[in-house]
Design a protein around this nucleic acid. Structure first.
Length: 209
DNA sequence: ACATTAAGTGATT
DNA sequence: AATCACTTAATGT
């Protein structure tokens, strides 16, 4: 797909042209790592298609899902990190085959001044992410695991725009920083309540969660 | 047919 | 809610 098509309603033509010139096209296969913890970020990603998963590790090295980045979205964390050349606190993995553009940080400063639409795009993505993070924090702090799981499934379903979720219990457990056995039991409960159906490596959500 | 991996379950802490 | 130990079911070779 043509870039100008994708960004037509987001950025002014001159900016799109600059993006075309300065941005680099990157294609990731499922589960490829775009950025690992500790690496220094030199570019900012904008997702064109697919889905990126942003997670961080807790003290014991367990992964915890923070949020997803879908098409036409960018990563606020990366942004704040890379503006000042700090090593990343988060890990970015392609959840499915993903295409994205990377914008070199060197031009971002300039664009912030030059293009209004760029500035509001960045600010908006920070705002949106920040709100999402607040929700996630709430969950970890106050909610029980079964509620977190339901939210997780909902979120995943929305992000992929599908009622079919292709994940093993093991992977879900990793995202929620718990054990597979616990997830299996909670999912079984949900299945008994007719809220979903379980298959191997696949979950079908019934109705609205 | 056999090995491997995912999922289900009771018992224990 | 986590862990162990074990079973059963699904899938790949």
């Amino acid at each position: 797909m043509k870039l100008s098509e994708i960004f037509k309603h987001l950025f002014e033509p001159e900016l799109i042209e600059e993006i075309e010139q300065k941005g680099k096209f990157v294609s990731l296969k499922e589960s490829e790592i775009l950025l690992d913890i500790g690496q220094t970020v030199r570019v900012m990603p904008i997702v064109l298609s697919g889905l990126l998963k942003v997670s961080r590790l807790d003290e014991d090295g367990r992964e915890l899902l923070l949020y997803y980045i879908g098409p036409k979205e960018s990563c606020a964390m990366t942004f704040t990190c890379c503006m000042q050349q700090f090593p990343s606190e988060t890990k970015l993995v392609a959840e499915e085959d993903t295409e994205l553009l990377t914008i070199p940080i060197t031009v971002m400063d300039e664009w912030m001044m030059k293009y209004k639409t760029w500035k509001s795009f960045i600010l908006k993505s920070i705002r949106v992410r920040f709100n999402e993070l607040m929700k996630t924090i709430d969950q970890i702090a106050f909610q029980k695991l079964d509620e977190r799981l339901v939210y997780y499934l909902k979120e995943k379903s929305n992000a992929t725009d599908s009622k079919l979720i292709n994940l093993s219990h093991e992977q879900i457990a990793k995202d929620l920083a718990t054990s597979r056995v616990v997830i299996s039991r909670l999912l079984k409960k949900l299945e008994n309540d007719n809220r979903l159906l379980l298959y191997r490596n696949q979950i079908r959500i019934l109705g609205e969660m």
